[in-house]
Design a protein around this nucleic acid. Structure first.
Lengths: 168, 168
DNA sequence: GGACAATTGTTGTCGTCAACAACAATCTTC
DNA sequence: GAAGATTGTTGTTGACGACAACAATTGTCC
């Protein structure tokens, strides 16, 4: 009859309210998720939101967001990369990367150097201040990673990284 | 060699390029991520993008996105909920939920019923077609979940759900 | 050597999504 | 009954992914 019966999924009927229009149980905790538990995507989405919010908060004083951090670390580890190469490596659209680099360049953390080999492309480098700033960002990022450990446990975090290693 | 190794920050110098402007190694695979591996947030973000894209593709014929699916399942399992309750349960802003319900209501999958108890709120219910449609969506969602299994392995998926159970 | 295709950076648009702020209608509380 | 909180709604902002188009440049093919 109900949709839940169709799939024979979770639990014995969603305990219908007597009056049909009634919405008396506003206790947000007792609301069943039905088929939603057991969906990896839902859990991953919620976790990703939590982890990004913690990252943004932990790096709030230096005003660096996760995507900016990823761009800086890649450039820091591989100086001279083109925008195209960075975009491909991080799975970012090159159109989007333009604005990201613009922002980081305005903050004097990154500089574009016109390549001699290929005059279409720009070689990306950290500035002097950019390198010292990145070092600080990394310390804060490690602090953030400790928060993750506290949230899901050290062993679980290790296992998680292992499971998802193929996506990096 | 584990992620903990990332703790030893910037240090061993990122093998600087000789010519400064040079961007010769456009081979996107050989670009190191440095501190990025070992960051749970990065792996989770990439995985979440992959999993959502597969969900959207798998449920492409019925034109249902992950957020819509989550709203439908919660309403289906808990008929009569208010928008506020659904928003709280799913971690969606109530402002955003308005448009989601608008869309689902236009598609005749959900209906708002003015509550007698609290005339501010609307009790949310699936329509008849909505229930049969949701049953189909769930079958497709299970197919999507099989794709996840094929991607990371059955055991890993189970472990993942277990690790992130606290976020549902 | 020259026409044609591909690549790089850039600009622009569109749609999704989270985060706020403000508002009218309605409930709750004192 | 007045003051404050809650619910649904509208609107704005900004980050983000997906596309499309374009100029400049490079690569390819005949």
């Amino acid at each position: 009859m109900t949709a839940s019966a169709a799939r024979a999924d979770t639990r014995p009927s969603p305990r219908k309210r007597a009056g049909n229009g009634a919405a008396r149980w506003n206790d947000a905790d007792e609301i069943g998720l039905d088929a939603l538990v057991g969906h990896a995507g839902y859990a991953v989405r919620r976790f990703q939101i939590w982890i990004f919010q913690d990252f943004i908060k932990t790096l709030g004083d230096v005003d660096i967001r996760p995507t900016q951090y990823s761009v800086l670390t890649v450039i820091g580890a591989n100086p001279g990369l083109s925008q195209m190469a960075v975009a491909k490596r991080l799975g970012i659209e090159r159109a989007r990367l333009v604005h990201l680099i613009d922002s980081l360049e305005q903050r004097k953390l990154v500089k574009r150097i016109k390549s001699k080999q290929d005059r279409r492309s720009h070689a990306l480098h950290l500035t002097g201040p950019g390198e010292t700033a990145l070092a600080k960002f990394k310390r804060l990022a490690i602090e953030h990673e400790r928060h993750v450990e506290e949230k899901i446990g050290k062993a679980n975090r290790e296992r998680l990284l292992q499971i998802l290693a193929g996506f990096t």
